[in-house]
C-alpha cells in the first residue's frame, strides 16, 4: 500500500469574487521527497496553487470548491487558526522576490530565529544554533556576520540563500518555491537551484516548484504539471514530458524555449491558433 501523499490537491477551483475562474479543477499530488514543477505562462495561475495551499491567496480570490489534503488531512475541516498552525508546522515558502521578502529594518538572524521560537516553540539557543547551521549549509561563508547584517547589506543571491535557509530551518515536510530564481542571474540561479536540490535530497522534503522556465523544470523536478489559464493540461513525470510530451501546449512551451546547444532548431512562440483553440475549449467547459 502506498504511503499518503505529502500534498494532495483534488479538484481545486479558485475564482475572483466576480466569478472569473483562476484555477479550474486542479488536481495534483506531491509524494514525500518529490519535486513537482508547476509550469505555465504568466496568468496561468501557477503561483495561485502554492498560495492556496499555504492559505495566502491574495484579496479578492476565493477557493470555490475542491480539497487540499496535507499529509492525508483535509485542510478545510480545520478552523482558520488551526489551519494556519498546521500549515506553518508542515510547510514553508521560498518567495520570488528576495528584495521585498525580508524586513529591511530587522537583522537577518532575528528573521530566521523568531519563527522557530514563536511558531515551532524552540528554545532561543537551539534556534540560534539551527540558524547558524542552516546559513552554513547554504554556503554562506561568515554566517555569524550575516546573522548580524541587515538585508540591504547583502546581494540578491545572498538574500535568496538566507530565504532558503529560513525556509528549511524548521525542517518542513513541504516547501512551496514560488519562482525563486526569476530575479537572479543565470550563474546565481544555478547555485540556488543546486542548493534547493541538495537540501531537498538531504532532508527528504517535498517541493512544489513554480516556474515559467522549461529549462529549470528539466533540471529540478521529477513530476510536472503544465498549466494554461488555470487548467492542468498535462501531468506527467518530467522524464516523459521531455522524451515525448503528450499535450500540444507542452510541446509548444518546449519549442518556445531557446537553446544555445541547438541553434539550428527553429524556436517559435506558442501558436496563436493553439491558444485560441484551448481558450475556446475552456470557455465551452464553463458554459456547460
Amino acid at each position: 500500500m502506498t504511503p499518503p501523499s505529502m500534498l494532495d490537491i483534488r479538484n481545486l477551483n479558485v475564482a475572483l469574487l466576480n466569478g472569473r475562474p483562476i484555477l479550474r479543477d486542479v488536481s495534483l499530488t506531491v509524494a514525500p521527497g518529490e519535486v513537482r514543477a508547476l509550469v505555465g505562462e504568466s496568468g496561468a495561475g501557477k503561483s495561485m496553487i502554492g498560495k492556496a495551499v499555504l492559505g495566502i491567496l491574495p484579496r479578492g480570490l476565493k477557493v470555490t470548491s475542491g480539497e487540499i489534503l496535507l499529509e492525508g488531512q483535509p485542510l478545510h475541516d480545520l478552523r482558520p487558526a488551526a489551519r494556519r498552525r498546521r500549515v506553518a508546522e508542515v510547510a514553508a515558502l521560498i518567495p520570488q522576490d528576495p528584495l521585498t521578502a525580508l524586513n529591511p529594518v530587522r537583522r537577518i538572524g532575528a528573521q530566521i530565529v523568531d519563527p522557530l521560537i514563536k511558531i515551532h516553540g524552540w528554545a532561543r539557543p537551539a534556534a540560534q544554533a539551527r540558524a547558524l547551521d542552516l546559513l552554513h549549509r547554504v554556503h554562506i561563508r561568515a554566517p555569524e556576520r550575516v546573522m548580524q547584517s541587515y538585508p540591504h547589506e547583502l546581494s540578491g543571491g545572498m538574500r535568496q540563500r538566507v530565504l532558503i535557509a529560513s525556509a528549511f530551518a524548521a525542517s518542513p515536510r513541504l516547501i512551496v518555491a514560488d519562482e525563486p530564481t526569476t530575479a537572479l542571474d543565470v550563474t546565481v540561479q544555478k547555485q540556488i537551484l543546486r542548493l534547493i536540490r541538495e537540501l531537498q535530497q538531504e532532508t527528504g522534503t517535498a517541493v512544489l516548484f513554480v516556474t515559467h522556465d522549461m529549462g529549470v523544470v528539466a533540471k529540478i523536478s521529477q513530476q510536472v504539471s503544465v498549466l494554461f489559464q488555470g487548467k492542468v493540461m498535462e501531468d506527467a513525470p518530467t522524464q516523459a514530458v521531455f522524451d515525448a510530451p503528450d499535450h500540444a501546449y507542452t510541446r509548444a512551451l518546449i519549442a518556445a524555449t531557446p537553446s544555445y546547444a541547438d541553434p539550428e532548431r527553429p524556436f517559435s512562440p506558442v501558436p496563436q491558433s493553439l491558444i485560441a483553440e484551448m481558450s475556446a475549449a475552456l470557455a465551452m467547459e464553463v458554459r456547460r
Partner: peptide
C-alpha cells in the same frame, strides 16, 4: 564557460549539477 554551463537547457541532463 561558466555562463554557458549555468543555462538550464530544456532537456533532461542528470549531470547538469
Amino acid at each position: 564557460r561558466t555562463l554557458l554551463a549555468a543555462i538550464p537547457l530544456p532537456e533532461l541532463d542528470a549531470h547538469w549539477f
